[in-house]
Design a protein around this nucleic acid. Structure first.
Lengths: 203, 203
DNA sequence: AACGGATGTAGTCGCTGTCTACATGGTAGG
DNA sequence: CCTACCATGTAGACAGCGACTACATCCGTT
């Protein structure tokens, strides 16, 4: 019989790890602090010493999710190939993350975070857009894409892929494959950005 | 003093109406059957006679949401103007709905509906895509848009606007206006669909 | 007028998040 | 060395929740 030490030692990490598993199995609303405590063999009040709130734990999950996501996006952005190929790479990285951890993505973009966490989350969550924006600017300067407001275009690309990711994560894509969906989205967006907006060009 | 009749009479509708208000004020997780019962002056067990479950009530909310949304989209699709103008109209109708009732939209696209409700919801929720698809086919036949898989393209458009809607609803658009966002998205998508996918054309 | 189903009430159960008081154990200062 | 402190864990309590049950009331049918 192994004696459990009075202090767990790495309770915070253990809670986060187990919580990650739980939300993917049962969703956020299936997450219970008490059950979580039972899962890691600790009293029901112990988690409160590391997360003042249930929401605080969820915020920490979201934060970890953004960091993991940003890492995947960044490595995809640094891949080799043409600008368009790297653009597609980033898109697939994002949607791939979303599909692999759909519940986490929902938590990350949930509206109700603690005020203090919210600022930090917003900051960390915006990095994906910045990377997309940098790629668009680079393509515009290279003449591959038509001129245009890169900030807005990056937001459009991000939003579009975000939508595709959420639909894929929620299994709302009827017949289409996730990969087909991403390819079609990036192709259409890239073609649209390459062509530019006709109305703006006529004036 | 007005005597309350023993039977409420329209309890189901009253519950749905109040629940709509509540989720927009406090989110789905802020919705409590007991509080709801108190709000409409009935006992805490009364709602169970109309919704076996809390989830059943939420499913009913989602269903009502889709019907309301479909109505808005359909009227927008029947507006006058060029195909592109009608396309933008539909997009604005969708995003407008999303922004006006963000919590409801979240509920509508939530993953965990009852199995029986799920089929009905999926059916009702797909109408928006069908409308988009019909418009794209019409534009392709008119030669305004390049040929291409209309079903996939409709899904791409829907997903993109869905993403924009969710970001807008969740206040994740930093500086950009919702209207700017929709305009930029539809412009880019339309231009992309008009140009077609170069890779496919080269072969 | 009597029956029976639909609707609402009241009580209970186990579960939850949060709060409190207390126990434990590592660590730094005298 | 030991003592005081603070972070960490335990144990108990509380109100609120969803769901279930037994019972009350109303209303349409026959």
């Amino acid at each position: 019989m192994i004696e459990q030490p009075y202090h767990h030692g790495k309770l915070r990490e253990a809670l986060l790890e187990r919580a990650m598993e739980t939300i993917e199995e049962a969703g956020v609303e299936g997450l219970s602090l008490r059950q979580l405590a039972r899962d890691v063999n600790v009293s029901h009040g112990a988690p409160a010493k590391h997360f003042r709130d249930k929401q605080a734990l969820i915020d920490a999950l979201a934060m970890a999710g953004f960091e993991s996501m940003n890492h995947r996006i960044r490595t995809a952005a640094e891949s080799s190939g043409t600008l368009q190929e790297r653009f597609v790479s980033v898109a697939k990285a994002y949607v791939g993350f979303a599909v692999s951890q759909p519940a986490l993505l929902t938590v990350m973009y949930s509206t109700k975070h603690h005020p203090d966490s919210s600022a930090e989350l917003r900051n960390t969550g915006g990095q994906g857009i910045e990377i997309a924006q940098a790629m668009i600017i680079e393509a515009q300067e290279a003449g591959v894409l038509a001129p245009g407001n890169a900030e807005t275009l990056a937001l459009v690309c991000f939003a579009s892929l975000h939508g595709a990711a959420l639909l894929a994560a929620g299994k709302h894509l009827d017949g289409a494959t996730v990969d087909d969906m991403v390819t079609a989205t990036t192709d259409t967006l890239w073609a649209g950005m390459a062509a530019g907006v006709p109305a703006a060009q006529n004036s």
